[in-house]
């Protein structure tokens, strides 16, 4: 899912950066100060998890944990994933700095969308409804990954490969691992709900715009 250098055309790269900058700004502006450390730790988890590659058929897929990041961090998943991808590009040459915008958006946006869609299903007491919690977590984890595959295919739509072939290879290749990712998300969310519920739900509703925006620096 890490698109390499020189594959994409300039408009796609530009659009990717624009979308990523927007998402990252939203994430940073809405970042709860108490969640800075959580964001960093989950970013680190993403950084490590997407290094672990599972060979599936001829292709290779890796865990993302993006669904979990979306659930816990919301829009802050954008900065977390961005930092993870910067480090991967610099340290391991996975992806590239030029495709950073596209890759970040491809992985972070589905995570945020899935979180916004499925997190309300948790309700106030996720532990009281384990099945509902499980289904919501599974869908968030696996659909975030499928969404990322589709967005990657869309980014490749303007290359020789085209959208349909890329989408078929990417989505089919990621089906098994997205199921695994769903199961891991269930485990992580139920675990968090049990031992650290404030990670999933802010302890008190945060008054909007209490903290001045970052641009004041």
């Amino acid at each position: 899912m890490h698109i390499s250098e020189m594959v994409l055309s300039f408009p796609v790269i530009g659009a990717g950066f624009a979308a990523t900058i927007a998402g990252t700004l939203i994430g940073l502006l809405r970042l709860d100060p108490d969640k800075i450390m959580t964001t960093a730790l989950l970013g680190a988890a993403f950084f490590v998890a997407s290094l672990i590659h599972v060979p599936i058929g001829g292709a290779q897929a890796h865990l993302l944990l993006s669904g979990l990041l979306g659930f816990v961090l919301g829009w802050a998943a954008f900065p977390a994933i961005l930092v993870g991808l910067v480090l991967q590009a610099i340290l391991f040459q996975y992806g590239a700095l030029t495709t950073l915008g596209v890759n970040t958006f491809n992985m972070a946006f589905p995570a945020v969308v899935c979180a916004l869609t499925f997190k309300p299903l948790l309700g106030k007491t996720p532990l009281a409804h384990p099945v509902r919690t499980g289904i919501a977590s599974f869908l968030a984890g696996s659909l975030a990954m499928i969404g990322s595959s589709l967005l990657t295919a869309l980014s490749l739509a303007f290359t020789d490969e085209g959208f349909l072939i890329s989408a078929k290879v990417l989505v089919l290749g990621h089906l098994p691992i997205s199921a695994i990712e769903g199961v891991i998300t269930i485990a992580a969310v139920t675990f968090l709900a049990k031992v650290k519920p404030e990670a999933l739900f802010p302890a008190k509703p945060r008054p909007a715009f209490q903290t001045p925006p970052l641009s004041g620096e």
């Binding site: 890490h2 672990i52 290779q60 890796h62 040459q93 996975y94």
Partner: peptide
């Protein structure tokens, strides 16, 4: 199942 050297490059 996977070795840590696996990668997407």
């Amino acid at each position: 199942w996977t070795s840590p050297a696996l990668a997407h490059r």
